[in-house]
Amino acid sequence: MATIAKAGPNTRLWNAEADEHDTISTRTFGFWLYMLSDALIFTGIFASYAVLSTPMNLAGGPGPAQVTNAVEGFWQTLIILGSVFAYSQATVALKNGSKAGVAAGILVAMVLGVAFVSMGWHDLAALTAQGNGYSRSAYLSIFFTLIATHGLHMGIGILWMLIMLVQIVRFGFTADVVARLLNLRMFWQFQATIWVIVYVYVYLLGGTA
């Protein structure tokens, strides 16, 4: 007859030979999955953009060719890629344990991030001032939604960087802080990835079509 062993203080429910639980990698993987689901939000917006960028939805207002400027969009592309590169350099400094290097990289990334958001904000404000605001047409509604959603993500990233600057000074490179810095690197790189698609889809393809 089989006996059932009762769990005691020495009972182990996992394979002792297996790798130990890596908190940092688990957290970055969890955040990665969150980002993939966040990307699906943008997918929904891109799908809506495809539907609403037809002449039928302009309602007599401006279309993609009138509200976008490919050269100006390229400058924004350069700025956001530069910002991502600066933050990536901060994580190279992290590898070397340099607090000053990490802080410098984050500060440069923040400045470039603010410049990028300001350019986007200026474009939307100029359109609104011309009477081509969010509610002018279905096309402008989805255009504003797309640019503002990306801008909101950028704003959250900038705020997150500010918080990390404080945490680096206050706590140093603890496991928690390092995991957050790695997550922020993914989040910031993700913004550049989304922007590349926005630039090609809205500014180049839409603007030319």
Partner: peptide, 8 residues
Amino acid sequence: PLQNPEVQ
């Protein structure tokens, strides 16, 4: 934490 593969 700085020895984590993702940092390295």
